[in-house]
Design a protein around this nucleic acid. Structure first.
Lengths: 174, 174
DNA sequence: TTTACTGTAAAACGATCGCTTTACTTCGTC
DNA sequence: GACGAAGTAAAGCGATCGTTTTACAGTAAA
């Protein structure tokens, strides 16, 4: 595990558990077991660190979600929540904590959301036969809602989202 | 407008725009046009202020959403977003920024979520004839997803959530 | 053996954090 | 006309913020 890996993975955990603004640089260096100088040489600034953490999480999340049906996608989200915890979407949390006015963070968030939207659109097209923009938007909302509601309702929220998605897909096929 | 009203309403705006942790007491006193001593006499602490702001928002939100159908509820959410902005659910944002370990804040958030869940359950029962827990959970997820996704997809996310909710309700009635 | 890289520990930068205090005004009410 | 309630401005509390700096150690290639 390289120094960079240590920095990114422990920072991700700290940000996720305690929030971005509330987590100071001392906690981050201490968490990574690294001096502050080393951390700054690697990432440049706290905002850049946040953006890098989000990019890395996007990679990890996309890899975790490599599924070929909408139903499997929601199953993967359920499993992700069991493993990683359910504290809401870290990307939207980063966006809202910074008020959306940190360009590097905003870009990382929107890139992730764009990628997820495209993936869902592709799966919908695969399963229904044609590209249904309205249905795709509904599945996106369900996915987002599952992540958000699971923070206080637990994994039943993800299960409900999956059921709803499957029902809507079935309605579109007929 | 009383001093307390000024404090709560301007604090709500600042928290919503810039985040809870990122908004310091000086911005809050300055925003309310009030001395720091007055603010502390009224609210006691920053965490207590956050909790009070959330309670007040819950009141305002519930009043805004006084509707008698699920469809009307989503219409109201769409209108709320137009008027108040779409930056995600302020309650969940408060919860995640504080890591969930500030009791007074956590209580305010869960009280709000419980109230919304009960309202949705009642509306579902009104419209389908019986209390369908699974369908209720799906509508809750859609509502939560609309609020979250609207932050980066705009009001089309709310429209999609409404369409999905109506479709699921129709499926349950038959 | 020198050079370059990567790391450490620790102090310090000015600014800001949440919060308290001191000293003083303004105002309605009894 | 005295009094308490409710407000002000401004300084200061110790702590922490994000960031830079100084001074030094280990290692591997040239």
């Amino acid at each position: 595990m390289t120094t960079m890996d240590k920095i990114l993975s422990s920072s991700e955990t700290l940000f996720d558990r305690h929030g971005f603004t509330a987590t100071g640089m001392d906690k981050l260096t201490q968490g990574a077991g690294v001096s502050s100088r080393t951390l700054y040489k690697h990432v440049g600034s706290k905002n850049a660190l946040i953006a890098r953490v989000l990019d890395e999480r996007d990679r990890r999340f996309a890899q975790f979600m490599e599924d070929d049906t909408i139903e499997a996608l929601f199953n993967a989200l359920e499993e992700w929540g069991r493993v990683e915890g359910r504290r809401g979407c870290l990307f939207l949390r980063a966006l809202s904590e910074t008020g959306g006015d940190t360009p590097e963070i905003k870009e990382a968030v929107l890139a992730h959301k764009m990628r997820m939207a495209k993936r869902i659109a592709r799966l919908v097209e695969q399963e229904t036969g044609d590209s249904d923009a309205a249905l795709t938007e509904q599945i996106i909302v369900l996915f987002e809602g599952a992540a958000a509601a699971a923070a206080y309702r637990g994994e039943q929220a993800v299960a409900a989202a999956r059921q709803a998605a499957v029902a809507l897909l079935a309605g579109a096929c007929s």
